[in-house]
Protein backbone atom coordinates (compact mmCIF):
# COMPACT_ATOMS: atom_id res chain seq x y z
CA UNK A 1 0.00 0.00 0.00
CA UNK A 2 1.32 3.40 -0.97
CA UNK A 3 2.07 5.91 1.77
CA UNK A 4 -0.25 8.88 1.26
CA UNK A 5 1.37 12.15 0.25
CA UNK A 6 1.11 14.50 3.23
CA UNK A 7 3.13 17.45 2.00
CA UNK A 8 1.33 20.76 1.96
CA UNK A 9 2.12 23.34 -0.66
CA UNK A 10 1.68 26.82 0.78
CA UNK A 11 0.96 29.91 -1.27
CA UNK A 12 2.58 32.29 1.20
CA UNK A 13 6.01 32.72 2.68
CA UNK A 14 7.21 34.46 5.83
CA UNK A 15 8.96 37.75 5.26
CA UNK A 16 12.67 37.72 5.96
CA UNK A 17 13.89 40.54 8.21
CA UNK A 18 17.54 41.32 8.81
CA UNK A 19 18.78 42.95 11.98
CA UNK A 20 22.11 44.73 12.13
CA UNK A 21 24.10 46.79 9.63
CA UNK A 22 26.82 49.41 9.71
CA UNK A 23 29.28 48.80 12.51
CA UNK A 24 27.71 45.48 13.55
CA UNK A 25 30.16 42.61 13.28
CA UNK A 26 27.34 40.28 12.42
CA UNK A 27 23.83 40.53 11.06
CA UNK A 28 20.96 38.24 11.94
CA UNK A 29 18.25 37.30 9.47
CA UNK A 30 15.00 35.85 10.76
CA UNK A 31 11.91 34.52 9.01
CA UNK A 32 11.86 33.56 5.36
CA UNK A 33 10.34 30.11 5.83
CA UNK A 34 7.85 28.60 3.40
CA UNK A 35 6.43 25.98 5.73
CA UNK A 36 5.46 25.39 9.35
CA UNK A 37 8.31 25.21 11.85
CA UNK A 38 11.01 22.69 11.06
CA UNK A 39 9.04 20.73 8.45
CA UNK A 40 12.20 20.54 6.38
CA UNK A 41 10.75 17.85 4.15
CA UNK A 42 7.98 20.17 3.09
CA UNK A 43 9.56 23.57 2.44
CA UNK A 44 12.47 25.79 3.31
CA UNK A 45 13.27 26.91 6.80
CA UNK A 46 15.51 29.70 5.62
CA UNK A 47 16.80 30.88 8.98
CA UNK A 48 17.10 29.32 12.39
CA UNK A 49 15.21 30.99 15.21
CA UNK A 50 17.51 33.52 16.86
CA UNK A 51 18.08 34.19 20.53
CA UNK A 52 18.30 37.65 22.05
CA UNK A 53 19.50 38.19 25.61
CA UNK A 54 17.76 40.90 27.55
CA UNK A 55 19.93 43.63 29.03
CA UNK A 56 18.51 46.46 31.10
CA UNK A 57 19.92 49.96 31.38
CA UNK A 58 19.18 49.93 35.08
CA UNK A 59 20.07 47.28 37.63
CA UNK A 60 16.75 45.45 37.87
CA UNK A 61 15.35 45.34 41.41
CA UNK A 62 12.50 43.01 40.52
CA UNK A 63 14.48 40.25 38.83
CA UNK A 64 14.94 36.88 40.47
CA UNK A 65 18.05 36.43 42.64
CA UNK A 66 18.85 33.49 40.39
CA UNK A 67 19.35 35.86 37.49
CA UNK A 68 21.46 38.17 39.64
CA UNK A 69 23.56 35.20 40.60
CA UNK A 70 24.02 34.20 37.00
CA UNK A 71 25.02 37.63 35.70
CA UNK A 72 26.77 39.06 38.74
CA UNK A 73 28.19 42.55 38.66
CA UNK A 74 27.61 43.26 34.99
CA UNK A 75 23.95 43.91 35.72
CA UNK A 76 24.87 47.40 36.87
CA UNK A 77 26.34 48.30 33.49
CA UNK A 78 24.44 47.62 30.25
CA UNK A 79 27.62 47.77 28.17
CA UNK A 80 29.40 45.11 30.23
CA UNK A 81 26.23 43.10 30.43
CA UNK A 82 25.83 43.16 26.65
CA UNK A 83 29.46 42.13 26.16
CA UNK A 84 29.01 39.20 28.52
CA UNK A 85 25.75 38.20 26.80
CA UNK A 86 27.59 38.12 23.49
CA UNK A 87 30.24 35.94 25.06
CA UNK A 88 27.56 33.56 26.36
CA UNK A 89 26.08 32.98 22.96
CA UNK A 90 23.41 35.60 22.23
CA UNK A 91 22.61 36.32 18.60
CA UNK A 92 21.05 39.68 19.40
CA UNK A 93 21.14 42.06 22.38
CA UNK A 94 17.72 43.25 23.58
CA UNK A 95 18.42 46.48 25.42
CA UNK A 96 15.60 47.63 27.63
CA UNK A 97 15.60 51.35 28.43
CA UNK A 98 13.72 50.66 31.60
CA UNK A 99 15.26 53.57 33.52
CA UNK A 100 13.18 55.96 31.44
CA UNK A 101 10.02 54.80 33.20
CA UNK A 102 8.62 57.67 35.29
CA UNK A 103 8.63 55.48 38.38
CA UNK A 104 11.96 53.81 37.75
CA UNK A 105 14.28 56.72 37.17
CA UNK A 106 12.54 58.86 34.57
CA UNK A 107 15.71 59.26 32.51
CA UNK A 108 15.35 61.05 29.19
CA UNK A 109 16.47 61.17 25.58
CA UNK A 110 20.07 62.14 26.32
CA UNK A 111 20.60 59.24 28.70
CA UNK A 112 19.02 56.92 26.15
CA UNK A 113 21.43 58.13 23.49
CA UNK A 114 24.41 57.57 25.76
CA UNK A 115 23.29 54.09 26.75
CA UNK A 116 22.63 53.04 23.18
CA UNK A 117 26.01 54.38 22.09
CA UNK A 118 27.77 52.56 24.91
CA UNK A 119 26.07 49.27 24.17
CA UNK A 120 26.70 49.59 20.43
CA UNK A 121 30.37 50.02 21.24
CA UNK A 122 30.47 47.14 23.69
CA UNK A 123 29.04 44.50 21.37
CA UNK A 124 29.24 43.55 17.72
CA UNK A 125 25.75 42.04 17.78
CA UNK A 126 22.59 43.63 16.36
CA UNK A 127 20.33 45.40 18.84
CA UNK A 128 16.73 45.48 19.82
CA UNK A 129 15.90 48.56 21.90
CA UNK A 130 12.78 48.49 24.03
CA UNK A 131 11.24 51.54 25.67
CA UNK A 132 9.98 51.41 29.26
CA UNK A 133 6.43 50.63 28.11
CA UNK A 134 4.96 53.98 29.00
CA UNK A 135 3.62 55.88 26.01
CA UNK A 136 5.24 59.28 26.34
CA UNK A 137 8.54 57.95 27.55
CA UNK A 138 8.62 55.27 24.85
CA UNK A 139 8.21 57.98 22.26
CA UNK A 140 10.89 60.10 23.83
CA UNK A 141 13.63 57.50 24.25
CA UNK A 142 12.93 55.36 21.21
CA UNK A 143 13.19 58.36 18.90
CA UNK A 144 16.52 59.18 20.51
CA UNK A 145 17.69 55.56 20.26
CA UNK A 146 16.69 55.32 16.61
CA UNK A 147 18.60 58.49 15.79
CA UNK A 148 21.67 57.48 17.76
CA UNK A 149 21.81 54.07 16.08
CA UNK A 150 21.20 55.36 12.57
CA UNK A 151 22.86 53.04 10.09
CA UNK A 152 22.92 50.09 12.53
CA UNK A 153 19.51 48.67 11.59
CA UNK A 154 18.32 48.06 15.12
CA UNK A 155 14.79 47.01 16.02
CA UNK A 156 12.78 49.41 18.19
CA UNK A 157 9.66 48.61 20.13
CA UNK A 158 7.05 48.26 21.11
CA UNK A 159 4.75 49.88 18.59
CA UNK A 160 1.23 49.17 19.77
CA UNK A 161 -2.18 50.05 18.40
CA UNK A 162 -2.56 52.98 20.78
CA UNK A 163 0.95 54.22 20.19
CA UNK A 164 2.70 53.32 16.99
CA UNK A 165 2.97 56.44 14.90
CA UNK A 166 5.92 58.13 16.56
CA UNK A 167 7.87 54.90 16.85
CA UNK A 168 7.25 53.96 13.24
CA UNK A 169 8.14 57.50 12.15
CA UNK A 170 11.42 57.23 14.05
CA UNK A 171 12.15 53.88 12.39
CA UNK A 172 11.28 55.34 8.99
CA UNK A 173 13.51 58.36 9.43
CA UNK A 174 16.49 56.36 10.64
CA UNK A 175 16.18 53.14 8.64
CA UNK A 176 15.42 50.94 11.63
CA UNK A 177 13.19 47.92 12.13
CA UNK A 178 10.02 48.22 14.19
CA UNK A 179 8.42 45.69 16.56
CA UNK A 180 4.62 45.63 16.30
CA UNK A 181 3.11 44.27 19.49
CA UNK A 182 -0.51 43.18 19.76
CA UNK A 183 -2.38 41.46 22.59
CA UNK A 184 -2.73 37.77 21.59
CA UNK A 185 -5.31 38.21 18.87
CA UNK A 186 -4.97 37.36 15.21
CA UNK A 187 -7.14 40.20 13.99
CA UNK A 188 -5.50 42.81 16.17
CA UNK A 189 -2.09 41.63 15.02
CA UNK A 190 -3.24 41.90 11.46
CA UNK A 191 -4.75 45.32 11.97
CA UNK A 192 -1.59 46.68 13.53
CA UNK A 193 0.54 45.34 10.68
CA UNK A 194 -1.80 47.05 8.23
CA UNK A 195 -1.73 50.35 10.13
CA UNK A 196 2.03 50.29 10.41
CA UNK A 197 2.40 49.28 6.78
CA UNK A 198 0.13 52.18 5.80
CA UNK A 199 2.72 54.57 7.15
CA UNK A 200 5.01 53.46 4.39
CA UNK A 201 7.54 51.32 6.21
CA UNK A 202 8.68 48.40 4.03
CA UNK A 203 7.68 44.90 5.06
CA UNK A 204 11.25 43.84 5.56
CA UNK A 205 11.40 46.23 8.50
CA UNK A 206 8.48 44.94 10.60
CA UNK A 207 8.67 42.19 13.20
CA UNK A 208 5.51 41.25 15.06
CA UNK A 209 5.17 40.37 18.70
CA UNK A 210 1.85 38.56 19.20
CA UNK A 211 2.46 38.45 23.00
CA UNK A 212 2.87 35.26 24.94
CA UNK A 213 2.20 33.84 28.34
CA UNK A 214 4.63 31.52 30.08
CA UNK A 215 4.27 27.80 30.59
CA UNK A 216 1.25 27.33 32.83
CA UNK A 217 0.21 30.94 32.29
CA UNK A 218 -1.39 30.83 28.90
CA UNK A 219 1.36 29.51 26.67
CA UNK A 220 -1.15 27.16 25.07
CA UNK A 221 -3.34 30.11 24.16
CA UNK A 222 -0.49 31.99 22.53
CA UNK A 223 0.62 28.78 20.86
CA UNK A 224 -2.81 28.55 19.27
CA UNK A 225 -2.90 32.22 18.27
CA UNK A 226 0.56 31.98 16.73
CA UNK A 227 -0.36 28.80 14.93
CA UNK A 228 -3.34 30.56 13.38
CA UNK A 229 -1.18 33.55 12.47
CA UNK A 230 1.29 31.26 10.78
CA UNK A 231 -1.30 29.17 8.95
CA UNK A 232 -2.97 32.33 7.65
CA UNK A 233 0.41 33.75 6.62
CA UNK A 234 1.44 30.61 4.77
CA UNK A 235 -2.04 30.42 3.32
CA UNK A 236 -1.30 33.71 1.58
CA UNK A 237 -2.46 36.43 3.97
CA UNK A 238 0.21 39.06 3.30
CA UNK A 239 -0.73 41.08 6.37
CA UNK A 240 0.44 38.33 8.73
CA UNK A 241 3.68 37.30 7.10
CA UNK A 242 6.01 39.15 9.46
CA UNK A 243 8.45 37.10 11.55
CA UNK A 244 7.57 36.85 15.24
CA UNK A 245 9.53 37.91 18.31
CA UNK A 246 8.53 36.88 21.85
CA UNK A 247 9.64 38.17 25.22
CA UNK A 248 9.86 34.76 26.80
CA UNK A 249 12.29 35.71 29.56
CA UNK A 250 10.06 38.46 30.86
CA UNK A 251 7.04 36.15 30.96
CA UNK A 252 8.76 33.07 32.36
CA UNK A 253 10.61 34.86 35.12
CA UNK A 254 7.53 36.47 36.56
CA UNK A 255 5.79 33.16 37.18
CA UNK A 256 5.66 32.03 40.76
CA UNK A 257 7.51 28.84 39.86
CA UNK A 258 10.52 30.75 38.57
CA UNK A 259 10.42 33.76 40.83
CA UNK A 260 10.44 32.26 44.27
CA UNK A 261 11.27 29.25 46.37
CA UNK A 262 9.37 30.41 49.46
CA UNK A 263 6.66 28.13 50.73
CA UNK A 264 6.59 25.96 47.64
CA UNK A 265 5.93 22.21 47.85
CA UNK A 266 9.02 20.11 48.15
CA UNK A 267 8.13 18.04 45.10
CA UNK A 268 8.70 21.14 42.95
CA UNK A 269 12.34 20.26 43.26
CA UNK A 270 15.44 22.35 42.82
CA UNK A 271 14.57 26.00 42.37
CA UNK A 272 17.28 27.01 39.91
CA UNK A 273 16.70 24.00 37.73
CA UNK A 274 12.95 24.59 37.78
CA UNK A 275 13.23 28.26 36.89
CA UNK A 276 15.64 27.68 34.04
CA UNK A 277 13.53 24.87 32.63
CA UNK A 278 10.48 27.09 32.91
CA UNK A 279 12.06 29.65 30.64
CA UNK A 280 13.58 27.10 28.28
CA UNK A 281 10.41 25.08 28.02
CA UNK A 282 8.30 28.13 27.22
CA UNK A 283 10.79 29.15 24.55
CA UNK A 284 11.01 25.71 22.92
CA UNK A 285 7.23 25.42 22.89
CA UNK A 286 6.93 28.70 21.04
CA UNK A 287 9.69 27.90 18.60
CA UNK A 288 7.53 25.00 17.53
CA UNK A 289 4.66 27.28 16.61
CA UNK A 290 6.65 29.79 14.65
CA UNK A 291 8.63 32.07 16.97
CA UNK A 292 11.57 33.49 15.00
CA UNK A 293 13.27 35.47 17.73
CA UNK A 294 13.22 34.79 21.46
CA UNK A 295 14.20 37.28 24.11
CA UNK A 296 15.63 35.31 27.05
CA UNK A 297 17.21 36.10 30.38
CA UNK A 298 19.18 33.22 31.87
CA UNK A 299 22.46 32.03 30.30
CA UNK A 300 21.64 28.39 30.97
CA UNK A 301 18.24 28.52 29.36
CA UNK A 302 19.90 30.20 26.38
CA UNK A 303 22.17 27.18 26.14
CA UNK A 304 19.28 24.74 26.44
CA UNK A 305 17.20 26.51 23.83
CA UNK A 306 20.13 26.75 21.48
CA UNK A 307 20.69 23.01 21.79
CA UNK A 308 17.04 22.31 21.06
CA UNK A 309 17.08 24.58 18.02
CA UNK A 310 20.25 22.88 16.76
CA UNK A 311 18.44 19.58 16.81
CA UNK A 312 15.28 20.93 15.27
CA UNK A 313 17.32 22.46 12.47
CA UNK A 314 19.33 19.29 11.94
CA UNK A 315 17.18 18.14 9.07
CA UNK A 316 17.57 21.39 7.14
Amino acid sequence: MAVPEVKEKYAGRIQEVTLGAGSRGKTVAIGGESTLPFLHFEGTVANRPAIAIEVSDREPDDWSPLLKEAWGDVMGDPAKWAAKAEELGADVIALSLDSAHPERGNTGADDARKTVRKVLEATTLPLIVYGPGQKDKDNEVLVAAAEEAKGERIAIGNAEEKNYRTIVAAALANDQVVIAKSPMDVNLAKQLNVLIGDMGIPKDRIIMDPTTGALGYGVEYSYSVMERVRLAALGGDATLQQPMVLTVGYEAWRTKEARTNDEVPQEWGDWAQRAILWEANTAITLVNTGANLLVLRHPQSVALVRKAIDRLMAGA
Binding site: N139, V143, E147, R165, T166, V168, A169, L172, A173, M199
Partner: peptide
Protein backbone atom coordinates in the same frame (compact mmCIF):
# COMPACT_ATOMS: atom_id res chain seq x y z
CA UNK B 1 13.10 68.62 9.86
CA UNK B 2 13.44 65.34 11.72
CA UNK B 3 12.04 66.70 14.96
CA UNK B 4 9.00 68.20 13.26
CA UNK B 5 8.77 65.49 10.65
CA UNK B 6 8.16 62.85 13.31
CA UNK B 7 5.37 64.98 14.75
CA UNK B 8 3.85 65.44 11.31
CA UNK B 9 4.02 61.73 10.65
CA UNK B 10 2.67 60.62 14.01
CA UNK B 11 -0.10 63.21 13.90
CA UNK B 12 0.82 65.38 16.86
Amino acid sequence: LRAWGIQLVDGR
